[in-house]
Design a protein around this nucleic acid. Structure first.
Lengths: 330, 330
DNA sequence: TTGAAAGCGATACCAA
DNA sequence: TTGGTATCGCTTTCAA
């Protein structure tokens, strides 16, 4: 069932049918109604390929998520998807995993699918290869990076100031009398780097003694974090507070503490990052740095939509994280 | 940059270029290499609309998720997306939310995007409206329902036997000496219905006394579950075990128990459903019915892929849930 | 208010 | 081994 079939049924030309489908003026009310009726009866909808080919727009955006397992990323993705559904777009979502070499490949896939715009979710996308790939495959399409930025005319970044978020927490802990603070970070992403810089800022600003051993890199995993935290606490018995770069790691820490007979927050303070449901599930609930998930989704959606409509946007939008005090700090 | 531009640059016809792009025989090695080189230099990729229009296939599948907040659904969705990426497909993912009236609308969107196949994730899709909509908009495309089934030639269902899963848990509890067992269910989806039937099966099979008050409907929410569980336990002080239809509700139960000074599992057993990370985060970890998330994703992917290739599949695939005993049961 | 015809960028058949 | 041409289903001018 195509536009010609409809035209035949209605006894008009396909041009007229096209006008009706696209709500364009220049059709007699009577004719319009007749065609609308047939359209409905036949459950007709236009072929999106023909449409895309003829009009060169297809109302599709791409969303690439770097890590499926990160509920925080997934939620941002779905938030954006929801917003764009409102705008009449559909979203092609792909998860490229942690393998760096796949980034270019996925960008190519998106480009070849003629997406009108793209959102990349995760700080890992902030790298030089990505810059090259965007230049090569998507130089004329708007791209928004959630939690990262690349200096290109068609790219806009929305970043959470994670560095400040962590350094503020160090301030908070110091104000509560903590002097020996640990930091457990996940492996090197741009985001992890920022968090660590924030930790060091806090140490310096508050004139705390810095000990290399107070920083430890671990995998972003519940079980692993439990094991590593136990080791860490045994090696550093004087530590009274630990900041984690992800909530799930902080949950592992709570488990380690329970196992070791340490009370949280009486014996040790635990701080997470993301203010996710994980931090609420934990007993005690975990004080956590809220990275403004919803605001991030909003900002990304709005930025991309503006760009799609040819409006100017900032090169970078900044969001300030908020420290949510719960039961794992005193 | 289109196929004609490439042809001009290579000094051949666009037909030859098309042959090279599609890896078809009948091109001299030398010519092929020359064209490949130009293709690469120009970072050319074919216009997907033109391709879709001409060949009538576009390697796009649709995935509709009913509830974004359910990590279990999201993971199944991403699992399928991953599998289909391997097959060279992209996935258009949409979350239609809990609003029933939107189901038809989303189906229409997918149809109008000419998806080659569709996966619906969630038992809520198993209803008559959906059946009508599929008939109307997607009668010729393969549809797979995760955790549901609709009797139509082009629809295949993959269901987890949740009923058996719950009734098995009742058996387990009875074998441990429990006689007064509660069941807290979320609101009426087909899935919730099945779980409840399973609970009743278990009660009957084990000749337990049935009391209407032992079943309670609550919202699938952490905080709400905590509140409702506390009420429930006060109203039914003789209960020694409660089964929840979702892990997150069971987590709320643990919180309620802690608050009330009840020890888990000494004073009361708590059982969740989904065997999600929530049940592992909790202290104690929650014994939970594993609904075979990964297997579900696999089965759905394979079923859809088979149907796309014109192969026959079962009308329904069954998966058996597995009870994972952890620390919240004795 | 309507319609004819060109064009979008591929694929695929048939001829050379 | 190549190329010409029709075709997919729509949008968009231009003319009537």
């Amino acid at each position: 069932m195509n536009i010609y079939d409809i035209a035949t049924l209605a006894g008009v030309s396909h041009t007229t049918v096209s006008r009706v489908i696209n709500d364009k003026p220049g059709v007699k009310q009577e004719t319009r109604e007749k065609i609308l009726k047939i359209l409905d009866e036949q459950a007709y909808f236009p072929n999106s390929h023909a449409r895309g080919l003829a009009s060169n727009e297809n109302k599709v955006i791409g969303i690439i998520v770097i890590d499926v397992r990160n509920i925080h990323h997934i939620h941002t993705a779905f938030h954006i998807e929801e917003a764009f559904t409102q705008y009449g777009y559909v979203s092609v979502i792909a998860s490229c995993g942690l393998d760096d070499s796949k980034q270019e490949e996925y960008l190519k896939v998106m480009a070849s699918r003629n997406v009108e715009g793209l959102v990349l979710i995760g700080s890992r996308f902030q790298n030089n290869n990505m810059k090259k790939s965007i230049k090569k495959y998507l130089s004329d399409k708007p791209v928004v990076i959630a939690n990262g930025y690349i200096e290109l005319d068609n790219v806009c970044g929305v970043v959470v100031n994670e560095r400040k978020g962590v350094s503020n927490v160090v301030d908070f802990l110091v104000s509560k009398g903590h002097k020996n603070i640990g930091f457990m970070n996940d492996y090197v992403t741009y985001s992890a780097h920022n968090k660590q810089e924030g930790f060091l800022d806090g140490i310096r600003k508050n004139n705390l003694m810095f000990n290399e051993k107070n920083i430890k890199y671990i995998k972003t995993e519940l079980e692993n974090s439990e094991i590593e935290t136990e080791k860490f606490l045994k090696e550093n018995p004087n530590i009274t507070a630990i900041i984690y770069s992800e909530d799930i790691m902080a949950v592992g820490a709570i488990k380690a503490c329970v196992k070791m007979g340490l009370k949280v927050p009486e014996d040790i303070n635990i701080i997470g990052f993301n203010n996710s449901i994980y931090s609420d599930i934990s007993i005690p609930t975990i004080s956590s740095i809220d990275n403004r998930n919803t605001a991030m989704g909003d900002r990304c959606s709005k930025a991309l939509y503006s760009m799609l409509n040819g409006e100017k946007t900032e090169a970078i939008y900044h969001l300030m994280p908020k420290f949510k005090v719960k039961d794992s700090t005193n």
